[in-house]
Simulated assay, not measured.
Amino acid sequence: MSGFIAGAPVPSGHINTDTFWPSIDIEKLRKSLRIDSSVTPARLETAIIAAAISVNDELDAWLQAKRAEGFVALTEVPSPPVGDVTKHVYLYLRAIEAATGAEVCERYRGYDTTGSGSKNAEDTAPTIDDYRRDQRWAIRDFLGKSRTTVELL
């Protein structure tokens, strides 16, 4: 297996799920997670969609409550500003980003089954756990629930 990583331009775009949620900017997510072009656009799109399904499922009860209050988009829900977006928009996109990062890491750890590939899988395991933790924390923060971390000894 060579160390060559293609440097071709990566197509960009947006992924939209439910009209309530903000669209996901693929290029921005790719840059934020530092995902290079070795992850194909199709594979990244699949990971983002899987992440969105997971996050949207976890937030479904909250979504239904907000729709019952008359809100049609997350940007309409009162929330403190964080930069150029609201806290809820930021946390939603953060949860999607973290879930996508975990998905990509999990998929790419199995490509090289040589000794270096096995070592690489061990090196990425904490990153996968970190991404999953970040996803849980973003969702809990979004819902206004406290964070709890429990580690078995």
Rank of each mutant, 00 (worst) to 15 (best):
103 E>I: 01
141 D>A: 15
4 F>K: 06
116 S>D: 08
9 P>L: 14
72 V>N: 14
85 V>M: 14
3 G>F: 09
105 C>R: 12
61 A>Q: 13
152 L>K: 09
81 P>N: 11
69 E>V: 10
39 V>F: 00
16 N>H: 14
143 L>V: 06
12 S>L: 13
60 D>Q: 15
2 S>F: 09
110 G>P: 04
145 K>S: 09
50 A>H: 06
34 R>N: 06
6 A>R: 14
147 R>V: 15
12 S>G: 15
4 F>T: 08
145 K>Y: 13
117 G>M: 03
50 A>I: 03
105 C>M: 13
131 Y>M: 13
102 A>C: 06
4 F>E: 07
129 D>E: 10
147 R>T: 12
32 S>V: 00
25 D>S: 13
19 T>W: 07
3 G>N: 12
61 A>Y: 10
71 F>G: 07
44 L>V: 04
150 V>Q: 06
94 R>I: 04
91 L>P: 01
63 L>A: 05
123 D>I: 08
37 S>V: 02
4 F>D: 05
134 D>C: 10
4 F>L: 12
131 Y>F: 14
150 V>W: 04
2 S>A: 10
41 P>V: 07
153 L>G: 03
37 S>M: 03
86 T>M: 07
103 E>M: 02
126 P>W: 04
2 S>M: 09
19 T>E: 10
63 L>K: 05
108 Y>L: 13
133 R>W: 13
104 V>M: 02
38 S>K: 12
133 R>A: 12
22 P>E: 06
69 E>Q: 13
61 A>M: 11
64 Q>I: 13
120 N>F: 11
114 T>N: 11
86 T>Q: 09
152 L>P: 03
52 A>T: 00
31 K>H: 07
15 I>N: 02
43 R>P: 01
24 I>K: 00
111 Y>P: 01
133 R>S: 11
152 L>H: 10
82 V>C: 12
74 L>E: 01
115 G>R: 13
24 I>T: 05
135 Q>V: 03
126 P>D: 08
97 E>R: 09
4 F>A: 05
41 P>E: 06
120 N>I: 06
27 E>W: 14
37 S>E: 09
73 A>Q: 15
49 I>A: 09
36 D>Q: 07
15 I>K: 07
13 G>Y: 07
40 T>M: 05
67 R>K: 15
20 F>R: 02
15 I>D: 01
91 L>C: 07
68 A>S: 15
125 A>T: 08
113 T>R: 15
5 I>C: 08
116 S>C: 03
15 I>P: 00
138 A>V: 04
97 E>Q: 10
65 A>C: 11
15 I>H: 08
68 A>D: 15
38 S>H: 13
97 E>K: 09
128 I>M: 04
87 K>I: 10
13 G>S: 11
77 V>D: 04
4 F>G: 02
132 R>N: 12
118 S>W: 09
36 D>N: 11
61 A>N: 11
153 L>H: 07
25 D>M: 04
92 Y>I: 00
141 D>P: 05
87 K>E: 15
39 V>G: 00
43 R>N: 08
118 S>F: 08
70 G>V: 08
15 I>A: 04
140 R>T: 05
48 I>V: 15
9 P>V: 13
